[in-house]
Design a binder for these strands. Structure first.
Lengths: 235, 235
DNA sequence: CCGTCAAGAAATATATTACAAATAATCTAA
DNA sequence: TTAGATTATTTGTAATATATTTCTTGACGG
């Protein structure tokens, strides 16, 4: 339902492949191929290639100029907050540094969202938050998925903030959380914040305790941050 | 230097026009034109239109399906943090609500960036911050531009955080700050935080006082936030 | 002899046109 | 209700022409 229209659209798969290639540095040392070279490589028509290229331009990954060809943009021009770009980076070029940076911004963003949620959450928002907490408790008893219930909670809080910019980070944070938890689990064994810890945040939001909710959410994520910092720093 | 390649590229101007049209709700009540209708309207070839459409898809503004045509995505799918999308919104469909929401997230993001800057700023970062403060004092004496020196300060702090996600918000925040200051000036007369207020933040960053810098930056932006909330709420 | 400028050539993206194929909503008939 | 046909529309292919930037070359002046 949320799939790309043509599930195996040629354009889409070229965008994927080039996008992943760019963020993983496949073209760092070699000049980026020209349009026609890419056509040949993918066995696709010119227009299809051009459309793929345009999508990557729209995401800030490349630029094009006559006589100069296609070039990978300097990294600071990439739309890091574009869900595709971030996902490509997290899934294909995971690095401790990226995870640390992302968790740092989560400390600010999610605690801010919690504070807003405490003030502005609608009844429906509150129900969503409580439902997620319920799932987390269920997960501790093996009756639900721990990963998805955790993500559901964080998304519900962003949603409850009523601020579109926080809401925008929903996809990013759920993608990142997914990768983050998988990694930390793999490296350290299952060890993450309990449903009880999350519940404390939820209760403060439901009670409208804005500043307390901010602090509690910050502490919660700080816990994840500390866990990450204990991981081996290789690369 | 940061201009689009062909300064008057047909594709680029179509993307602009459609992008602005979408965010300003030009297609809310009428069905979105088909590819061929757009061709005719812009007097452009089919392929050009398709490339423009692909760029808008990449920014989350539209979706396409056979038999259904091009459709404007629900607003929560827009890549609000894409610099183009945000700029279109701010410049062409300014609303108090958007400015309030954006300033809310700035409270969290910029105070977080200030805290990180206090811990991790390089010598060069610090020099940039001090230079911006110098420009702000100069602006108060009429020797520099008040708007640009203000923006330079906030950008320098984001840069100094050393975190790519904060850095990513540079374009967004400078665009938004630009619009925000213009608006508040127009509606309330010149009245904004002094160079002295900014300098206090800068000194705390330079001194490595992480938590104090966070608080001072938050207070600074809270001042702007209070100012915005005093503005007439029309629309 | 060196540097600057102008004109032309070359490389490459950009734009046009025409047509074929695939997909998914809608309609029709059993 | 379901299965199939219809049809509107995007997606993909191909060949060609245009526009823009960069590089090269040469001329001129210092």
């Amino acid at each position: 339902m949320r799939q790309p229209v043509f599930s195996t659209s040629v354009t889409h798969s070229i965008v994927q492949d080039l996008g992943v290639g760019i963020v993983t540095g496949r073209f760092d040392d070699v000049p980026f191929p020209t349009e026609s070279a890419l056509c040949e490589h993918y066995g696709a028509a010119r227009t299809v290639l051009r459309e793929a290229v345009k999508m990557l331009i729209a995401k800030g990954l490349i630029t094009t100029r006559p006589k100069q060809g296609i070039r990978v943009s300097p990294e600071h021009n990439w739309n890091l907050l574009d869900p595709d770009v971030l996902r490509w980076l997290l899934e294909r070029k995971f690095s401790m540094r990226l995870l640390v940076e992302f968790t740092q911004i989560r400390l600010d963003v999610e605690s801010g969202a919690a504070a807003l949620a405490a003030r502005f959450a609608t009844e429906d928002d509150k129900a969503q938050i409580q439902a997620a907490i319920g799932r987390m408790y269920a997960a501790e008893k093996g009756d639900d998925d721990p990963l998805h219930s955790d993500i559901a909670f964080h998304v519900a809080v962003l949603q409850a903030s009523g601020n579109r910019f926080y809401l925008q980070m929903r996809d990013m944070i759920s993608a990142a959380l997914h990768v983050s938890i998988m990694r930390t689990n793999k490296l350290k064994g299952v060890h993450r914040a309990s449903a009880r810890d999350h519940d404390r945040v939820a209760q403060l939001i439901l009670a409208g305790e804005s500043e307390a909710a901010r602090k509690e959410m910050r502490d919660l994520i700080q816990g994840a941050f500390d866990l990450i910092n204990e991981l081996p720093k290789r690369e």
